[in-house]
């Protein structure tokens, strides 16, 4: 039995000032699945996320959400004004009322319990990502939407973060839709890849995507080959 679809975008067209950003893009995320959008800079990845989130109205096409869908969103970065004094505790409370034990539990889950009383602007890149994730999780979402979640995090931190996301998916049985730049690490953590370059170049299982001619044309032979080997190896380890 396949899991229910949480969110589906159908034939999304979007243009900014005459410049086409998205062309007939469709995607769907099922409960329990991790879908990753990859693509070069300016491919429309963040725009697509914003359409899916309802932040940007598409020129045509539609987005359908499961009834009573709860969304958790983790933006690419926070443009926090230095003029706003904010501890992590207060930041988390700004997402909605949450009791202290729930806050503590979520911070433990993302391994950021030590920063509860820290000031937001004092956090490292990795800590900010974890706190942002904690805020999204506090809403007990059915679907997590992450925009380049490991931007500004070192390589070890990136691997850890993807492991955390994979664990969240299986423990909470939620759907995850994310944008990523990092091809190697993300391929390990994802069930389905959507390669975007204005239009959908190809999508499917990571391994099949990495062999697709358009993907190879976009990212080059070496990347594609390295990824094919990687995902292959991955299959064996768990097969």
């Amino acid at each position: 039995m396949t899991a229910p679809i949480l969110i589906a975008a159908e034939k999304i067209d979007l243009a900014f000032g005459g410049h086409r950003v998205l062309e007939s893009v469709s995607l769907s995320v099922r409960r329990g699945a991790i879908v990753t959008i990859i693509g070069p800079n300016g491919a429309g990845k963040t725009s697509l996320l914003k359409v899916v989130l309802g932040l940007v109205e598409p020129d045509s096409g539609r987005v359908e959400r499961a009834a009573t869908l709860r969304l958790g969103y983790m933006p690419q970065r926070l443009a926090l004004a230095d003029a706003l004094p904010l501890t992590v505790r207060r930041f988390l409370a700004a997402g909605g009322p949450a009791d202290p034990s729930a806050v503590a539990a979520v911070l433990r889950e993302v391994r950021a319990e030590r920063v509860l009383e820290s000031t937001m602007t004092d956090l490292s890149g990795g800590e900010i990502q974890r706190v942002l994730l904690a805020r999204a999780l506090l809403r007990r979402p059915d679907l997590l939407v992450l925009d380049e979640p490991v931007r500004g995090v070192d390589v070890v931190g990136q691997a850890e973060f993807y492991e955390l996301i994979a664990r969240l998916r299986s423990e909470r049985n939620i759907g995850i839709l994310m944008v990523s730049h990092d091809l190697h690490l993300v391929m390990r953590a994802t069930d389905e890849v959507l390669c975007l370059n204005g239009h959908v170049c190809c999508h499917g299982h990571p391994e099949s995507v990495s062999r697709h001619p358009e993907f190879v044309a976009l990212f080059g032979d070496q990347v594609a080959e390295a990824m094919a080997v990687y995902t292959h190896h991955h299959d064996h380890r768990h097969g």
Binding site: K50, G54, L55, Y73, P75, A94, G95
Partner: peptide
């Protein structure tokens, strides 16, 4: 007050929430 603080933190995040 509550929504104003949420918007000051991040308008997109507030809107999604």
């Amino acid at each position: 007050w509550r929504p104003l603080v949420a918007i000051a933190i991040d308008a997109d995040l507030a809107r999604v929430e």
